[in-house]
Design a protein around this nucleic acid. Structure first.
Lengths: 232, 232
DNA sequence: TAAATACAAAATGTATACAATATATCGCGG
DNA sequence: CCGCGATATATTGTATACATTTTGTATTTA
């Protein structure tokens, strides 16, 4: 067992990352340096370095003289997201199929097992985190330094968007997650078979699913009620 | 005139960025905290924050307990680069054509003027920096948070690769830079015309040019000399 | 009453001193 | 002479104290 006990810095970083991904720290939330440093037994100096690092990864925004905030989700986020995601993700999965190592494939299978477990529990956060982990591994598999930064940022907001919509959505939800899980399985198989084309197709299908999911949330069937009749 | 005098931190950051882009700080170079802090009149605390920030942008690598280095250029860098660059760059330029604001177009024209000036001087570093600035503005124009991180990393290594090869290359060089400059002009026009398709095509042509340039450097015509006859 | 200004409190930014860790040097033994 | 290990040096990491900036509040004035 070689787990070298994570440093307080790593613990804090992981805590914040998880918080951001699960919306426990909502977009735009202020982070109090003093409170966090007391809570994690760190002085402000290393804490601020963690902030800088997480800002570089896209989790936080640092505004000079005004402290750190959880990076925002603006009105245009969704549009930007669905413009970039299919392209980047298809490329990553294609490269993943070409370059995955055996140990990475093992890790991916394990992540998928965790994801399925999370599906059966009713813990939305666990689900989002497990899904995030799965896709993160595909990113490692691709082994392309230039693609990864964008991919990781997409994964952050993918998780946050999923948290937003899976929490709210009723019906169809289980269908969709089941399909997503099947996609994951097919991805694993395509990667094992080194079948880049299939992997790429699966990436597109996967985003198409997300897209439909969110569209149904953002533009639901209108309430069919007469105007102005509501105040008894 | 609203130039609020850059803070020492910004100065340092810019200095390091420029150094990395121009190879004044070669890949893998160690950065001495104490020396730099004395040189720029900063204490180590803010200096290390600059390191963290630049690491996030892809300029530096931070290894725990072993200080900061200029991020490396490995053997696989070129391959990764030319796999990712055409795709990302085409996407960025397409979005740039769709979303550019008037003031950004003005800035782009100015950058191109600077680039041409640098072409006539014989300063390779100036040339690389001006080219970098030009492309950086196209990145701003695209206005897509998710694409930018990868794009910016590509630009860093684009500059470094250009510095490597333009310094060494003989002949054809002027042809190529002239063609590159023409591409830039055509890009500006396509952006003004909001012609996304043309912009995307230009992106591909531009990378094709770079690619050819580097191929000729990496795989030159072999020296046509008899083996083993060299030691007088 | 509303706006503006001055003051107070809080939070961020920086410097310096100290602790921990990594690297280099020297001495010893094989 | 080479390799190993211990000590010394240098460098990185952390804590704390202080300076600066921002933000909130109260008071004054139109």
């Amino acid at each position: 067992m070689n787990k070298p006990t994570p440093s307080p810095k790593d613990q804090l970083a992981d805590h914040l990352r998880q918080g951001v991904l699960t919306l426990a720290l909502p977009p735009g939330a202020d982070l109090d340096e003093v409170r966090l440093s007391e809570e994690f037994g760190l002085s402000r100096t290393p804490l601020r370095e963690v902030f800088r690092a997480l800002a570089g990864e896209g989790y936080l925004d640092l505004r000079a003289g005004r402290g750190a905030r959880v990076s925002d989700m603006s009105m245009t986020t969704l549009r930007d997201f669905f413009l970039a995601a299919p392209m980047i993700y298809a490329a990553v999965l294609r490269l993943a199929a070409q370059n995955a190592t055996q140990s990475q494939i093992t890790a991916l299978k394990a992540a998928q097992t965790q994801f399925e477990a999370a599906l059966h529990s009713d813990n939305t956060a666990q689900r989002a985190l497990a899904n995030n982990r799965f896709h993160d591994i595909t990113g490692e598999m691709a082994q392309n330094t230039y693609l990864l930064p964008s991919f990781k940022r997409l994964l952050i907001d993918h998780a946050r968007i999923a948290m937003t919509f899976y929490n709210a959505q009723t019906g169809r939800q289980d269908d969709d997650t089941e399909t997503a899980s099947q996609h994951h399985h097919a991805m694993i198989n395509a990667i094992i078979a080194r079948d880049a084309d299939t992997a790429e197709d699966l990436a597109h299908a996967h985003w198409q699913l997300s897209r439909g999911h969110i569209e149904r949330f953002v533009m639901p069937g209108a309430l069919d009620l007469p105007l102005g009749a509501s105040h008894n």
